[in-house]
């Protein structure tokens, strides 16, 4: 046992492996969130109010409750129903549904931004509903909402920090573990912050640039 241990290369590697966990959870949750979001978004945009409103109301609940509480509740289902799901799965599902709640509104705004006349024209050229959605509506909607989707993905990336509460060692938790050994919280947290920044800032800039470029056309 010795005091005054300084930050070593291994600590950095440990934090980077935490960052990999953060990225993995982000990718999985965004994938779940986007597929559910497209499904619900299409349903909300193109169905009568008695289907659209309940979907909107239920998804609104997920946006009005702190993610931390949702994680704890999801995690408690695990023991209540004896599911024995790994914590990673619980975290990804919970974040995925949380992301879906936001993605649904993004998809809906994109789909409603596609002019009805364009969609009708496609249908009258003989495309089925499914063909029209896949080759007309979704490509046009994607162009419109891609910047906000990037914002959502980055938001989910930042929200993954909360999964430390249910016992997953991601970037923030790994930096905390390193801190307990090195006893230099400011230095270690700054490195963690730098890693978060490097993961988020370039993509945020890309999104802003695309938004600017696509707006002109």
């Amino acid at each position: 046992m010795f005091f005054g241990a300084s930050l070593s290369w291994n600590d950095i590697l440990f934090m980077l492996s935490g960052a990999v966990t953060t990225i993995a959870i982000t990718l999985a949750s965004v994938a779940i969130g986007t597929s559910l979001g497209v499904l619900f978004g299409l349903a909300r945009a193109g169905s009568p109010w008695w289907i659209s409103w309940p979907i909107g109301g239920i998804l609104d609940i997920f946006r009005s409750i702190p993610l931390l509480i949702q994680l704890v509740l999801f995690n408690s289902f695990n023991s209540m129903f004896r599911l024995h799901w790994p914590t990673y799965l619980v975290a990804c599902l919970c974040l995925g549904i949380y992301a879906a709640a936001f993605c649904t509104e993004i998809v809906r705004s994109g789909v409603t931004a596609v002019p009805t006349t364009t969609r009708r024209a496609a249908r009258s050229l003989g495309l089925t509903w499914f063909q029209e959605v896949v080759s007309i509506t979704l490509p046009m909607a994607t162009r419109i909402v891609f910047p906000s989707w990037i914002g959502l993905a980055l938001g989910v990336m930042k929200d993954t920090a909360l999964v430390l509460w249910i016992g997953i060692v991601e970037l923030l938790r790994s930096s905390q573990i390193v801190t307990t050994r090195v006893q230099e919280p400011l230095l270690v947290l700054s490195i963690a912050g730098l890693i978060y920044f490097l993961m988020s800032f370039p993509i945020a800039r890309l999104g802003a640039q695309l938004e600017k470029r696509w707006r002109i056309q």
Partner: peptide
């Protein structure tokens, strides 16, 4: 602005709670 927007809120709270101790 960029720190607030590009890092998790929990990280910012940690930085204040644990980090300011260094000062």
């Amino acid at each position: 602005i960029e720190t607030a927007r590009n890092t998790p809120a929990l990280f910012q709270i940690y930085l204040i709670y644990f980090g300011l101790g260094s000062f």
